[in-house]
Amino acid sequence: MTLLKNGVPSQEQVRQKFPSEAVLARPKAILECYEEIPCNPCSTSCPFKAITIGEDINSIPQIDHDKCTGCGICISSCPGLAIIVAQTDSDKAIFKIPYEFIPVPVPGEKWIGLDRSGNPICEALIVKADTKKTNDRTVVVTVETERRFLYDFITIRCPYE
């Protein structure tokens, strides 16, 4: 199965969007945009000019991970919810992800980590849930998982439903 048939990108597609793990010692945005569509808010919202789309707004965004500070402003700017920020810290992977469901996670809670097919794969410790107004009701959630889920974790599910 492929992205075109079931909406799930392949491991290879996902890996191509990640910088090397050495670079991920600092937080970096991962742009999971695989298709040319007319859209450019990630690029125009980046305060560090790290994301380039160029003249044709249909182009796939390119990110310069040297310029990216992992600030995460692009996360809530992406209408496709296709951007996360990833970082590694010894045996942990730390993510900032967009989340648009209720209830809003609370720091300290342990939620269910899901992969790109929606399978539960790991425990996800909620570190922060940023509801600031400029996110426009997309909550940016900081989550910690075991490092081995770096390339598989994508979102969270509430364990209390």
Partner: peptide, 23 residues
């Protein structure tokens, strides 16, 4: 159709919630 019709970012955000798409 044999492939998803809409934007793949929309499809991906549903797939990750576990909704199956049958082409």
């Amino acid at each position: 159709a044999p492939t998803i019709g809409g934007y793949k970012v929309h499809a991906a955000k549903i797939a990750r919630l576990g909704v199956p798409i049958y082409v």
